[in-house]
Amino acid sequence: MVRAVAEAARIHLDAEWILIALADGALPEASPRHLILDSAGVAYAFEGLSGATDPGPHLPDAVLNRLNDILRGQLAQFRLPVIERQHAHVPIELDDVVIGAFAAWTPRSRALDTSDEVVMRILSSQTAVALQNCSLFSKSQALLAESEARNAELLATQRELGAAQRHQVLDSERHRIARELHDSVAQTVLSAGMQIEVCRGELESQSASSDLIDRLDLAKDLSRSAVEQLRSAIYALNHPGDAQRSSLPEMLDQLATVHMPEDLRVTLKVVGSPVEMPSDVEHALLRIAGEALFNTAMHGHATRAIVRLNYTPAAVALSIADDGTGEPEKLRMMLRLSEAADVDGHHRGLANMRARAREHGGTLEVLRSRIGGVRVVATVPAPNEKRTGHDD
Rank of each mutant, 00 (worst) to 15 (best):
V129N: 09
S210Q: 02
S319P: 06
F102G: 05
R3L: 10
E173N: 07
R287L: 11
I83T: 10
S232M: 10
Y235H: 15
G241M: 10
M334E: 11
I177S: 11
L67C: 00
A4E: 12
N310V: 15
V90L: 06
L154E: 04
A321N: 08
D54E: 09
P55W: 01
A284V: 01
V82L: 15
A164Y: 09
L161E: 13
F46S: 10
L318M: 12
R215N: 03
D171W: 11
R72Q: 13
P249N: 03
R110F: 07
E117D: 00
G324H: 01
Q254R: 07
V366H: 00
G290I: 06
L22C: 06
V281D: 05
A163G: 05
A15R: 00
N68I: 12
N238L: 13
L71H: 08
V185K: 06
H89R: 11
W105C: 03
L13F: 07
G201T: 06
V198M: 08
R265W: 02
N133M: 15
T267A: 07
M277A: 08
R368S: 14
A355P: 03
A26L: 06
F137W: 11
N68R: 11
I70L: 13
A243T: 13
S210W: 05
T257S: 05
V366L: 09
R110N: 13
A23Q: 12
F137C: 02
H87V: 07
A104E: 06
Q168V: 04
G372T: 03
L27G: 04
R231T: 08
P32H: 11
G372S: 05
M1N: 13
S225I: 01
G389W: 14
N310M: 04
R110V: 10
A149H: 07
A163W: 02
A45C: 06
L80A: 15
F78C: 03
A156Q: 07
A164M: 08
T114Y: 09
P249E: 04
H299P: 00
L218P: 01
G361T: 12
Y311S: 02
R10E: 08
H87N: 10
G324D: 00
D211L: 14
L35A: 06
H58D: 08
V366G: 01
R72V: 09
R348P: 06
